[in-house]
Design a binder for these strands. Structure first.
Lengths: 341, 341
DNA sequence: GTGAAAGCGCTAACAG
DNA sequence: CTGTTAGCGCTTTCAC
């Protein structure tokens, strides 16, 4: 029984009060060239007076398109993704697009459900960082076939050639990082990555392996460690490895999450960094410099990646250059050596 | 010239193929009781076959309401807000609401612009953590008067009685934290907070002052330090204070940002924590335990706050209990003493 | 239990 | 330069 009366004014009322036709008002509001300056002025003024805002449902329905994009990411509680969302927001906001956010929580089923939900036509495009490779990538193809909506992948990208991507030079920076570890004396490094068969991780691993070989070290399978989702389990696994007879003398972590766990284990086992073990990680931790000891990182230009992805997507949406659809934008990572090496 | 033909099927086509009227199909899809089970089944099956999804623009226009809510926060690159968004997402997702995200970037003008944009009627409710108190809070009142849309404030809330809020026991935990510092020997603590006259900060400051007095220490105005936005400037200010003749022997930081700067200064000036200075902060830093030394924190239940805020908002939207509109939900903070004290 | 019809508020031909 | 008109795809009385 709430009085939700005084609901906003509409075009009809504006037109009536102005003694104009509704279509004239519509055109005036759209700043159409076929309306006289004086009429426009009158319309704008009355609209402002009533704080009139066109009903987006009606206008979107009529135009068969809106101004919302969806961002799908595995998690937001992660400095990298938070920065990326910030970057995305910086361009969508400027271009008057609204940003819907969906968290897949590293769950492929969620990701599919989100995609399916988005097939209703509410949005004009998608920016996504995928959550896993295990379930395959067919849902992206299918989504695209059905909706023909522009999609831009970033960071964690599937290996689908037909889609535009924004990534970093994962192979090269991993190679460089590994070389750096080896040059500082590591003979037995351990590369820690998530078990998902993600393009990003695979590229980093490839860089690691190639550096090992390039350095004329013998590559062994047990130089690679794959970790799952469960932080508790991961902790135990790392602890076991670091307590073994021939523990690694360096850890190169492919993700922020893994390096935090590694630090924790070293702290608990009182293993000195970098004396006993050197640590390097792909990470955007803001507090890298304050850790004990300060952490050497390869950080991704997350904000920039978000910006690039959003710019590309909006360009595609506005068809200014749909040809850009197969672009792969590669940005450079930045390695910062601190006390952990 | 892109062929954007095969655009999604609509109800009319479904109805035609089923030999039913469009209104019957609509009701069937809405699981209306006035439609026979057998008809519903046929409708659902065909809809599923064509992967039919009702056009939300049309349906929202007709129903004069949608299923989107807006979240307005000062920043997303902050563990607290990221967690809160995660919490919000956990409930909106479950209830099939879509979440629009807007970053005010600590800019009151942006905040107003966002609010103004949202007056177009696109959303059904707002969850917000305000960005500043300097510009006053009249825009919230006005927004509400004009739209009558439900609004829930969380954490950084204005002092407007008529709105529901989700906050933490800022006064009490600040009081307790200060007592803790004093009991461990601090005689000259410094309370660092942002210069914004935010309710949250003011409560914390009040807790600090009361604890000082309760401990029979003389309160001096210079025990309070207000910092602005510019990290570089803040660094210099703190550095100057810590280099002074009679530097504080404890820092109690009201925000995560300020404590990071403080740590940095101590590190650069080689001031030993906690021997020379004790540090405590309101913070949700994930890496608190890994800092050098590990940081003592009062952390807010950010995820829970997001959840509570979203649940409350959806309840208000669905009018299940519009009476809850003046609720103030107060959650408890958690103090964790680590090596910095 | 099903259908006909009237719009929700707006845009875009098409006329004038 | 302005107005008339026909919907966009859906929901909801109101008939039957």
């Amino acid at each position: 029984m709430e009085g939700n009366n005084n609901k906003s004014i509409n075009m009809i009322q504006l037109a009536k009060e102005l003694g104009l036709s509704i279509s004239t008002v519509s055109k005036a509001l759209g700043d159409s060239h076929e309306i006289s300056a004086s009429t426009k002025k009158r319309v704008f003024e009355l609209a402002a007076k009533y704080n009139y805002k066109p009903n987006p449902f009606a206008s979107n329905l009529r135009k068969k398109k809106g101004t919302q994009i969806a961002v799908i990411i595995p998690e937001i509680v992660n400095h990298f993704f938070a920065l990326a969302v910030d970057g995305i927001g910086s361009v969508t906001m400027e271009k008057d697009y609204d940003t819907l956010i969906y968290l897949s929580n590293e769950n492929p089923e969620r990701e599919r459900a989100i995609l399916s939900h988005l097939e209703n036509g509410m949005i004009s495009g998608i920016i996504i960082s995928v959550c896993s490779g295990r379930a395959g990538y067919t849902h992206f193809q299918e989504f695209y076939e059905r909706t023909k909506l522009p999609i831009v992948f970033f960071d964690r990208v599937p290996d689908l050639l037909q889609f535009p991507k924004v990534i970093t030079d994962n192979y090269q920076s991993s190679f460089d990082g590994t070389m750096r570890l080896l040059k500082s004396g590591s003979k037995n490094p351990l590369f820690v990555s998530p078990e998902e068969p993600l393009y990003t991780s695979l590229e980093r691993r490839r860089g690691f392996q190639d550096a090992i070989r390039k350095f004329n070290l013998k590559f062994r399978e047990d130089m690679l460690l794959e970790l799952g989702e469960d932080a508790g389990v991961n902790y135990m696994v790392i602890k076991k490895i670091l307590s073994s007879k021939k523990p690694p003398d360096a850890i190169f972590a492919s993700t922020e999450r893994n390096v935090i766990t590694s630090y924790q284990v070293c702290k608990d086992l009182k293993i000195k960094i970098p004396q006993k073990i050197k640590i390097l990680a792909f990470s955007n931790l803001r507090t890298a410099t304050l850790l004990n000891p300060s952490l050497s990182t390869i950080s991704q230009p997350a904000f920039e990646m978000g910006k690039e992805a959003a710019s590309l997507l909006l360009k595609m949406i506005e068809r200014k250059s749909y040809a850009a659809a197969n672009d792969v934008i590669v940005l450079a990572n930045e390695m910062t050596i601190r006390d952990s090496i």
